[in-house]
Design a protein around this nucleic acid. Structure first.
Lengths: 344, 344
DNA sequence: CCACTTGTTGGTAACGTTACCAATCCCAAG
DNA sequence: CTTGGGATTGGTAACGTTACCAACAAGTGG
C-alpha cells in the first residue's frame, strides 16, 4: 500500500539521480533530446515512467519570457448553451496551439469580472478572451493588463480599443425584421436585453431601422428590453400578448428571450387562451426550432465559430504583436433560416 | 505612449522599493496585514495600485504545500448543452472556494484524456473532475495521480475506485419505459450510446428490465446503440421508422439522440411520410420539450446540480482526505415530467 | 601527433514568492 | 532608569525549472 501523504510529485532531481545523470540532462531530454545520447535518453525516459514524473509547468513558466500556456476565458453566462459552444470553439483552437483554458463565469457581474481578470493575470495567462459585462473599462486598460493581449467577443467595451469579434447584429436584426414586414406584419413586438448590453442595443437598432424604413413607428408598449433570462422573457411576452392590441409577430433579440416567448405561446395554445399566435423571429438559433407550433425564423450564427475566431485573433496577436498592427474587429456574418425551409 | 515591450509585470521587489519597505512586508500586507502597521500597509497598497501589481500565483504555489488554487475539469463533449451546465455547476462551487477551473474537452478520445490529465497534473491542480471516456484506467490510478484527488462524474471507470457522482440511470430509464408500457405501447424502440459508454449501458439496462418485467422481448431490430451525435441519431431513427413493423414509441437514452429522433419525426410530419408518429421518452430534458408535435416524456435531472455535487465531493476530499474515508458514490435522483403536465 | 571542431555533460544562477528566524523598536512595569 | 516583552521589520533560503557557460570526450584534418 502506498502511504497517504508523502507521495509528493517527483522532481527532476529524483528522476536525474534514478537515471544516473544530472537534472540538466533530464531537462534536455524532455525538451526534445538535442545533444543527448540516445541510450541516455532512454534511461531518462525509463526513470520518468517509473516515477510517474510530470514537469511542473508552474516552475517552468516562472523563468522570464516563458509562456504559461494558459488562456483566460471569462464568459457572462455559461448557462446559455451558446456560450458552451463558444467555450468549445476557444478550447479547440487553444488545444491546437498547445494551450489550456482557464474558465470563469461572470454572471454579468462587473465586480466578478474584475476579480477574474486579476486572478487570470496573477496566473500569468498568455492571453485573455472576454465577453465583457457592460461596466467600465478601467481594469482592461493596457497599462493594467501589462503585456497580456486581450480579445473581446460578442460585445465591445465603450472607450476601449481592443481586438474584437462581433456578429453582424444590426444587419441580422434588420433582415429578420424585414422578413416579418414582408410577410405583412406591421405590429411587431420586441424582446431583448437591456440597452446597456452591447448586443441588446445593436439588435434593437436593426429592428428599429427596419421599422422606420417602412414608415412604421415603434410602439413602446410592445418593446420589452430588460430580460436576461427565460423566466423574465416569459413574463414580458405574456404582458405583451395580453394587451388589447397585441403584436402579431415578435422579434426576439436572443436565445433566452426566444425560449421564454415560445414557452408563453405554448402555454396559451394549451390553455386555449384567446389572442394571436404570433410569428417569431429569433436572433440565435436553438435546437428543434423547426418543430415549433408557430413559424420561427432564425437569425443563425455559429457560436463555436465565434469562439474559434476569437482564439485565432488572440494567437495571431500573441505570435507577433507588431505585425498584427492596431486593434482589429472581425464581424462575422449571420444567416437567416426561414421556417418553410426544411433541410436543416 | 507606453512602450510595446518592457512593460513586464511588476514584482514584489519593485512594489517594496516604491513603498520603501522590504519584500516581506509587502507579502505580509497582501496576506492580510497581520503585524504590519496600518500606515505602512497603506503605503504598500498605494504602491500596489500605482504599479498595477498582481501576485504571481505560479511562483506562490511553487512553495511546497501551497495549493495552486486550480481544479482540472475534463469533459467529454462540451457541445452538449448538458455539459455546459455541468461545467457551470463546477465553476460555481469552485469559485465559492476561491478556486479556478482549468477546462478541457476530450471528445470521447482516450488519448486526449490522458494528455489532458498529464497536463493538469503538471500544472499542479489541487483536484481533478473527470467525465471519463470508456478507455482503461491506468493513467487515473492513485500511484499515477500522486496526491491529487479525483472525482468521476456521470460515469464510472471499470476497475477504478474513486469518488463518483452518478445519476440514477437504471431507475430513471426503468420508470420512463414503464410509463410507455402503461400507456399501452408494446413495441418500443431504443436509441442510445454504444454499450461501452457507462451511461449507455446503464440506461439500456433500465429499458430492458422494464420490458422483460412485462414479459416482452426486446427486438434487436429496433435497438440502435451506437449514436454519439444528433446526425447519427436522426439516421438511426429514420431506419427504425422505415421498417415494415416500426415501433410506436421510442426510448431515447440521451439528449443528443432525442434531438436527432425528433428532427426525423418532424421531417416525416412535414413531408407527410406514412407510418407512426411515435411517442418519445427522453433521458435528459431539453428546452421546449413541451411544444413538440409528439408527446415527449422527459427523465429530468439537473446537470448543474451534478456539477455542484461533484465539486462538493472533491472539496470535502481535499479538505480532509482521512475523514472522507473510502471512495464514495453519490447517486442523484431523477424526476419524470409527463407531457400533459404543463406547469414547468 | 597535435590543434581544432563537434557533441555531450554538469554546475551555477535566477525566475517570484513566502516560511522561518533574527534583529530592532517601542512601551510599560518594576 | 532599566528590563522584559510584544509588535514590527528585514535577511536568507528554498520551492522546481532551465539558460548560460565551462568542462570534457571523441573524432578530424593537417
Amino acid at each position: 500500500m502506498s502511504t497517504s501523504r508523502g507521495a509528493r510529485q517527483p522532481t527532476v532531481k529524483e528522476v536525474a539521480s534514478l537515471a544516473g545523470v544530472s537534472p540538466m540532462t533530464v531537462s534536455r531530454t524532455l525538451a526534445g533530446g538535442t545533444n543527448v545520447r540516445p541510450d541516455v535518453q532512454e534511461r531518462v525516459m525509463a526513470a520518468v515512467r517509473e516515477l510517474g514524473y510530470y514537469r511542473n509547468e508552474n516552475a517552468r513558466s516562472l523563468r522570464p519570457g516563458q509562456p504559461s500556456g494558459l488562456i483566460g476565458v471569462a464568459i457572462t453566462n455559461l448557462a446559455n448553451p451558446y456560450y458552451g459552444q463558444f467555450a468549445l470553439g476557444v478550447e479547440e483552437v487553444a488545444a491546437e496551439h498547445g494551450r489550456r483554458i482557464l474558465l470563469g463565469n461572470t454572471g454579468e457581474d462587473d465586480a466578478r469580472e474584475r476579480q477574474l481578470v486579476s486572478d487570470f493575470i496573477g496566473r500569468q495567462v498568455d492571453g485573455l478572451i472576454l465577453v465583457p459585462t457592460s461596466g467600465d473599462a478601467a481594469h482592461l486598460r493596457p497599462e493594467r493588463l501589462g503585456e497580456v493581449p486581450l480579445v473581446l467577443a460578442s460585445r465591445r467595451v465603450p472607450g476601449l480599443d481592443a481586438d474584437t469579434v462581433l456578429l453582424d447584429d444590426v444587419g441580422g436584426s434588420h433582415r429578420g425584421t424585414v422578413s416579418l414586414l414582408d410577410a405583412g406584419h406591421t405590429r411587431i413586438g420586441f424582446l431583448g436585453n437591456r440597452s446597456s448590453v452591447f448586443t441588446g442595443e445593436r439588435r434593437y437598432r436593426g429592428y428599429e431601422r427596419a421599422m422606420t424604413e417602412r414608415g412604421l413607428d415603434v410602439d413602446p408598449v410592445i418593446v420589452a428590453r430588460d430580460q436576461q433570462d427565460v423566466a423574465a422573457a416569459s413574463v414580458a411576452a405574456r404582458a405583451m400578448l395580453d394587451l388589447a392590441d397585441p403584436p402579431t409577430a415578435i422579434f426576439s433579440a436572443n436565445n433566452r428571450n426566444t425560449i421564454g416567448a415560445l414557452r408563453e405561446i405554448g402555454r396559451r395554445i394549451r390553455d386555449g387562451a384567446p389572442g394571436p399566435r404570433p410569428a417569431i423571429v429569433s436572433f440565435d438559433d436553438f435546437e428543434l426550432s423547426e418543430l415549433m407550433p408557430v413559424p420561427v425564423t432564425v437569425i443563425d450564427h455559429d457560436a463555436r465559430h465565434l469562439g474559434r475566431e476569437a482564439a485565432s485573433l488572440l494567437f495571431s496577436r500573441m505570435d507577433d504583436a507588431e505585425a498584427a498592427g492596431g486593434p482589429r474587429t472581425v464581424e462575422l456574418p449571420v444567416s437567416i433560416e426561414y421556417p418553410w425551409k426544411t433541410g436543416r
